[in-house]
């Protein structure tokens, strides 16, 4: 059927375009473009992962930065002791485990309790890490001899591609159908035999793994680890706004949103960070009220009518 083929073609097209762009940037781009592209890739990885639970099942996670921070912290703690790729695996496992710990009590009950907890858990984790660091006598950690900007860029693109594919795969699988059912009407889903709790927890864990690794890339890029930055609520807010702007129904949505917002932040972040946040808030409200399907949903609807 035409409608089912189109999302696949759009997503495949985006993936292909992404690969081409990656090759081009890796080969030709200067440092500024490389930095922008690495940023973009990181955000795509984060937002695609977020979509898995929060977009498809509607269980909005407002503190997703906690996985970025956890992954980064585990990476930093094991820096120098084990090979970098093992550090990445450790970070991913830690984030996944954290998602399990949070999800098991909170995804069992319906309602907004999950959301409320995610709102505070990033702050909680930040405070815990700050306390641990203080008791160890550390105030920020430096990472020496990390990978250079080009390998990190390729890594970020790899994560973005993996997240995109994962998000798409989940969306068009039985897991995805179950999650969408939960989003539409959880009671009805339970009645028809959807194992809601299990699916939610699986989705949550899946949504946490790649952000953990993105956290590693972020600290490796900047060369230092600072709890206030890596657990920042601004990261969580940007993820949510990006997905609402881009579209939460299928994989290409966040890509659109990420490109839009990254271009916007290029213009504003340096000069007026608080104004940028206010604009993000306004955009979020505007899109929630006026364009709840996001840019991707709007584009897809226009194509169908035409």
């Amino acid at each position: 059927m035409i409608r089912q083929r189109r999302p696949a073609r759009v997503s495949a097209g985006i993936l292909l375009a992404g690969l081409v762009a990656t090759a081009a940037v890796a080969g030709l781009a200067g440092n500024a473009t490389l930095a922008f592209a690495t940023n973009l890739a990181c955000w795509i990885a984060l937002t695609e992962s977020w979509l898995i639970l929060s977009g498809y099942a509607g269980y909005i996670s407002l503190g997703h930065a906690v996985f970025v921070g956890t992954g980064a912290y585990v990476f930093v703690l094991t820096w120098g002791m084990i090979p970098v790729w093992q550090g990445f695996l450790a970070a991913a496992s830690a984030s996944g485990l954290l998602a399990c710990l949070i999800g098991l009590p909170c995804l069992r009950v319906r309602g907004p309790y999950f959301v409320i907890l995610t709102l505070g858990v990033a702050e909680l984790a930040k405070n815990i890490v700050i306390n641990i660091e203080a008791s160890l006598g550390m105030f920020g950690r430096l990472l020496m001899d990390g990978p250079g900007p080009r390998p990190l860029f390729l890594l970020a693109c790899g994560l973005a591609a993996a997240a995109f594919v994962l998000s798409y795969a989940v969306r068009h699988s039985r897991l995805g159908i179950g999650l969408l059912a939960i989003r539409e009407n959880e009671t009805a889903a339970e009645m028809t035999g959807v194992p809601t709790v299990r699916l939610k927890i699986v989705a949550f864990v899946l949504s946490a793994i790649i952000p953990g690794m993105v956290g590693c890339v972020m600290v490796a890029r900047s060369g230092y680890f600072e709890p206030l930055q890596i657990f920042s609520p601004q990261i969580s807010l940007t993820i949510v706004t990006t997905c609402i702007i881009g579209g939460i129904d299928d994989a290409p949505g966040p890509v659109l949103g990420a490109v839009f917002l990254n271009l916007l932040s290029q213009a504003l972040w340096e000069k007026a960070p608080q104004l940028y946040m206010v604009i993000l808030g306004v955009l979020l409200i505007a899109f929630v009220l006026k364009m709840p399907d996001g840019l991707y949903g709007w584009l897809m609807r226009r194509r169908r009518v035409a």
């Binding site: 509607g58 407002l62 807010l237 104004l275 206010v278 993000l280 929630v288 009220l289």
Partner: peptide
């Protein structure tokens, strides 16, 4: 439904909280 009301209002209030916080800081 109640769920869709909760999730829509959640996002709207989330945006409001960011606007209020940063607006006050500005």
């Amino acid at each position: 439904s109640t769920e869709s009301l909760e999730s829509t209002s959640l996002l709207v209030f989330f945006g409001l909280s960011v606007i209020l916080q940063n607006g006050a800081a500005l």
